[in-house]
Write a protein that binds this DNA or RNA. Structure first.
Lengths: 105, 105
DNA sequence: CACCTGTATCGACGAGTGTCAACATAGGCG
DNA sequence: CGCCTATGTTGACACTCGTCGATACAGGTG
């Protein structure tokens, strides 16, 4: 995939790039989503069933809602296997964010 | 400063860490703020006068509002020099976010 | 001092967001 | 088929957020 955007030190963001990146950061701007994401990312194999990560202190519909947001932002992908749904991290999108924050690293 | 949080792959975030990091991501979750931040970061010396970056398509009070949010999130620092106010990036905070997104390099 | 420019704050308004209970859907199992 | 569990969707609500015009404050200049 396209790495979206260069490091922020490389120059001003265009309107379009700013909107794309802002959407990704927005997806991680909620503590519940951040915890869900970290639970998936830290799970063996980088994937986890919803039932493995749902314990974040909010109701089940709210968990589902947040997972949907993370999916829509491209940070997670999901796959149904029988009764359960498994979520995986999308490494390239996360890498795009990290690259953008790389201040002359 | 304290690097706040390990990479997300290292384990689940605590409630407190999740809230801290979410606040930082939230600061970059708006296109206008992202553009303001990138304008400061890409300016020579990593600092810029408000007058240099204010052209982002919103009113002056709105620019000031967003700069305040970035300041409160610890991503920018500001300093008045005579008539003008200069903003600088706070590299350590940005580094903390980048480190957190580092999926096993 | 009065005046002007640059920046911040205030107050209000509409849009968006997180949350839940209620309900719906998917798939396994009897 | 009917029932059960896992997950997603809907609708409603309180709350937050981005935005603006009006206003205030800071500092230079005359």
């Amino acid at each position: 995939m396209v790495p979206c955007c260069p490091p922020i030190t490389a120059g001003e963001l265009s309107q379009a790039d700013a909107e794309k990146m802002a959407a990704m950061f927005k997806a991680l701007s909620d503590p519940v989503r951040l915890r869900l994401f970290s639970k998936v990312a830290s799970h063996p194999g980088g994937e986890a069933c919803v039932c493995d990560i749902a314990d974040v202190g909010v109701s089940q519909p709210t968990v589902s809602h947040h997972l949907k947001k993370l999916r829509e932002a491209g940070l997670l992908t999901s796959e149904r296997r029988g009764t359960w749904v498994y979520y995986q991290v999308a490494p390239s999108v996360v890498a795009a964010m990290a690259a953008m924050l790389d201040l002359r690293g």
